[in-house]
Design a protein around this nucleic acid. Sequence first.
RNA 1: UGGGGUGUCGCCAAGUUGGUAAGGCACAAGGUUUUGAUCCUUGCAUGCGGGGGUUCGAGUCCCUCCACCCCAGCCA
Length: 563
Amino acid sequence: MVDREDARYPSNFISNIMTADQASGKHQGRVKTRFPPEPNGYLHIGHAKAICLNFGLASEFGGTTNLRFDDTNPEKEDEHFMTAMRRDIEWLGFRWEEEHNASDYFEALHDFAVQLIKDGKAYVCSLSAEEIRSYRGTLTEPGTDSPYRSRSVEENLDLFARMRAGEFEDGAHVLRLKIDMASGNMNLRDPSIYRIRHVAHHQTGDAWCIYPLYDYTHCISDALERITHSLCDTGFEDHRPLYDWVLDQLDVPGNPQQIEFSRLNLQYTVTSKRKLKQLIDEKFVRGWDDPRMPTLAGMRRRGYTPYALRDFCRRIGITKSDNNVELALLESCIREDLEASAPRAMAVINPLKVTLVNFEKEQAETLQVPNHPKDPDMGSREVPLTRTLYIDQSDFRLEANKKYKRLVLGQEVRLRGAYVIRAVDVRKDEHGNIKEVLCEYDPDTLGVNPEGRKVRGVIHWVSAEDCVSAEFRRFEPLFTVPFPDAEETDYRDLINPNSEQRWQGFVERSVLQQPRAQRFQFEREGYFIQDDVDATTSGELVFNEIVGLKDSADKMRATLESD
RNA sequence: UGGGGUGUCGCCAAGUUGGUAAGGCACAAGGUUUUGAUCCUUGCAUGCGGGGGUUCGAGUCCCUCCACCCCAGCCA
């Protein structure tokens, strides 16, 4: 792959804030961000937007970024996801300054909670979950103070200590902040900040049986790490007053600012962890790294490049408005990268046998074919030409109008990198299906166009006598509608049954001389990469189509059918 | 009269103190081409959710209306 330097983010409202902050000397001119995933699933394209933003902007402003696993809910989390996330972030091309877990702060968080209790700003509430809900009121009606809201500091301290000591059952008590049960902002109606959970934590083992909640943990973690700009999605907009409230009560270093931007919505895909997991559990796909998944692991296996993904994240921009990005933009990014960096090769995905009747059996010729049409530095390769070949079935017709630029019975076409051939006859099977095309080649047309004749076009091919058989997997979106989440129908009923298509064909032998991870453009077909899982087990080559060539041929076919 | 947000071309999105609507994707039309790819050229918002107002001048200021999104986890 060509090594390219990333462009800067176009100006956006967050970079504008950072510019202004540095100008005014806020945070002493520092910029420090963090990427805080919860280790309960795999990172996906939506996370890529946040990763690129956090790491990209920090770097542009001379700052750094921390990786922080937001692991305050041991019931849903697992160390395995941390490993996968580190790998995905590194693959995307980013390096974090410090790695932390929110659980690293459990002791500090506990001490801050004790301080809040002493200050009369937190209390132990013994209402049940259902009771708390009903006391909370509704969106339009204020809540009611919990009967435990006026417990004494001493009693709260004692109860909280016993909560930590494991004296109570799960759910018996919670620690709550004392803010305002009548607030229009539900988040300020005495939010819970600690709950009792007698479960082991993947990092702290059984050291704790009380675990802090997100709103309380996140702002303090940010402050402890001296984060300056804490970026999150717009779903947390009305949590900001709580974020600020907590920090205002405590004597913590730094004063991080939470800034919200809208999450990515990509057409034809879902990104909720619940749904992605369901797709796997219910066998719609083969795993987190299935090439059709919008996970970074899936896109990596599919062959997407880190550069293309970063470019995509930059091109979609950063705002607070709802968006629905078209797949075409993502595809444009990957094509642009691969157009320049992928060596060309030929592969026949849906083979049709061709025999060059005037090509002697022992004549086998070795042609020298450039690896890139406009980059001589990519060199050339040897491609064998023999009496029998394969071309794609869609590249031959018994008859066709002049718009069809491929092989037609009785007419000429050029074999890419080789000679001009003329179809003189066909052989059919008992069902009348064409199983072989007999052609004559013109020995005077290697590297030169014939005199006085106009050849229809150029088609790709592969020697039938010297090639490698391979499976080709082509993909369509996982869903049949652009907004699977917005439909009335369950999204699982909107799954595209043709999301993966497998073809048995042939590829030129030269690909075997390239690294396993080499991305190719199979001319006139698309960009492909070897699947890094299946090929090794079956012994046969398996190629995943990364993205097809931009194809005005689709529309061409339509016009051809019409006349 | 719950709170918080957002509305600029089909999609994404620039638009600092009001000065006369960037760019990308998509699309269309030409040109080049031994990939119907790439590349090159050109086109694509008298208009900035609607309606008022202020102003010499408003996407940018004021008023008002409309639409859409988020919030009632002891999830994050």
